Simulated assay, not measured.
Amino acid sequence: MSKIEAVVLDWAGTVVDYGSVAPTTIFVEAFKQAFNFEVSLDEARVPMGMGKWDHIKALGQLSSVDARWKKQFGQSMTDTVVDDIYQTFMPLQKAKVADHAQPIAGALRTIEWLKAHDIKVGSCSGYPREVMEILVPVAADYGYQPDAWVASDDLPAGSRPGPWMALQNVIELGVTDVANCIKFDDSAPGITEGLTAGMWTVGLALTGNAVGLTESEWQTLSISEQAALKQKAYDTLYQAGAHYVVDSLADAIPVIQKITAARVRHLRP
Rank of each mutant, 00 (worst) to 15 (best):
S2G: 13
E5W: 03
V7P: 09
V7W: 03
V8K: 02
V8W: 04
D10F: 12
W11H: 06
Y18L: 04
G19L: 09
I26H: 01
V28I: 02
A30E: 06
F31M: 10
K32W: 14
K32T: 11
E38I: 07
S40Y: 10
L41F: 13
M48V: 06
G51D: 01
G51R: 02
K57T: 13
K57C: 13
Q75H: 14
Q75F: 11
T80G: 15
Y86C: 04
T88H: 12
A95G: 13
A95T: 06
V97R: 00
A98Q: 09
D99P: 15
H100Q: 05
A105H: 15
A107V: 05
W113N: 07
K115A: 03
D118V: 09
G126K: 04
Y127L: 06
Y127K: 07
P128F: 08
P128W: 01
P128C: 11
R129G: 09
E130I: 07
E130V: 13
L135Q: 06
V136C: 12
Y144K: 00
Y144Q: 00
D147A: 10
A151F: 10
D153L: 02
L173Y: 08
N180W: 01
C181I: 12
I182Q: 05
D185A: 09
S187W: 11
P189H: 08
P189C: 05
E193T: 08
T196Q: 15
A197C: 01
G198L: 12
W200V: 03
T201S: 02
V202P: 03
V202A: 04
V211I: 13
E215T: 12
S216F: 14
S216C: 12
S216V: 15
W218E: 00
I223S: 14
S224G: 10
A233D: 04
Y234A: 00
G241Q: 02
H243A: 09
Y244T: 02
D247P: 04
D247F: 13
D247V: 12
A250I: 07
A252H: 01
T260A: 15
A261H: 04
A262G: 14
R268E: 08
